[in-house]
Design a protein around this nucleic acid. Structure first.
Lengths: 173, 173
DNA sequence: GTCTATACCAGGATAGAC
DNA sequence: GTCTATCCTGGTATAGAC
């Protein structure tokens, strides 16, 4: 992976995330990356290939997240960490997550294996905690995380009070 | 508003919502609507004008929603209706809401006055109900609604159990 | 109000030199 | 690995006839 190759990846992610994949032209990416347009195609075959390379990158990072949460054995602790997720997104990953959420609406669910494992581990946590409907609870947590992550990624928010409200709902406070 | 004009609006909404604004060409819209391409520009000036017409339409409908909820005086009842919102989206408005959420990520917040009023009415409900931090609670409800609406719009879900979980968190069950 | 024809440009992609 | 030059398609938009 040369420096220019990395530049292309970075620029494309930034532009895809902020302006959308379809309205970002390859020439714009090239200019932003300080690179010739042709180079993009040399390295990534086509625009779709570039997008896939970016997604592959991000998937690895996000799986690391999920993995670290799933390793926690205590269900209460695991739920707690899960609810924290939207608030601990590293700011240098904001672009990726913006892109991720955008694509959900255009290219279907963006599912990958790591996410299914995670979903299941949430369900198990609720089972162990004796909740009445663990799988609905897991679905709710997922929706909640997505909603809160959206607020975090798109608006200025004050994390502390919001987090407090959430934890109180799950009697973790 | 002639029939063909309406056809254009319907087709554009469907295509914008499912494939994205930028990757939907005017010629595709024209074919889908059974109309000449030129007609689109006669009626809506340009593609952006077409999009705006669609959004204006949807805004009116959604404001009707919000308005009906805000009229409810009892705070508990109002909160209850609010939490129901994602589950009572008429299926013929799914396209609009899909488009709405997509655009949030590309063109900023999609805010309009009706939404601010609504936000405030939620905050007031939590005040009246004696919650510690009403404005954070309102923000949480908004995130929750968005997250749940996303599930409803993008996945198959079983509304009943999910709703039960939510109501239980707010002691409405 | 509506269609056909067409202008014009921008975007994705390739070829070939260095 | 990288750049320059270029091709070609298809997208937005306009003009003019009916």
């Amino acid at each position: 992976m040369t420096e220019k190759q990395q530049n292309i990846l970075n620029s494309a992610l930034r532009l895809f995330a902020t302006e959308g994949v379809d309205s970002t032209s390859t020439s714009k990416i090239a200019k932003h990356a300080g690179v010739s347009e042709g180079l993009i195609f040399r390295h990534f075959t086509n625009k779709e290939g570039l997008l896939q390379a970016i997604l592959e990158n991000g998937r690895e990072k996000s799986d690391a997240y999920f993995h670290s949460v799933m390793q926690v054995k205590d269900p209460k602790e695991r739920l707690l960490m899960t609810l924290h997720l939207p608030f601990v997104i590293p700011s240098d990953e904001y672009d990726f997550w913006r892109l991720f959420y955008t694509l959900k609406w255009q290219r279907g669910p963006m599912e990958h294996e790591g996410m299914n494992l995670f979903r299941n581990s949430m369900k198990e946590a609720f089972e162990e905690l004796g909740y009445t409907n663990p799988s609905a609870e897991a679905q709710l947590v997922e929706a909640l995380i997505d909603g809160v992550a959206t607020e975090v990624l798109l608006k200025e928010i004050y994390p502390k009070p919001l987090l407090d409200c959430i934890l109180e709902k799950y009697k973790l406070k």
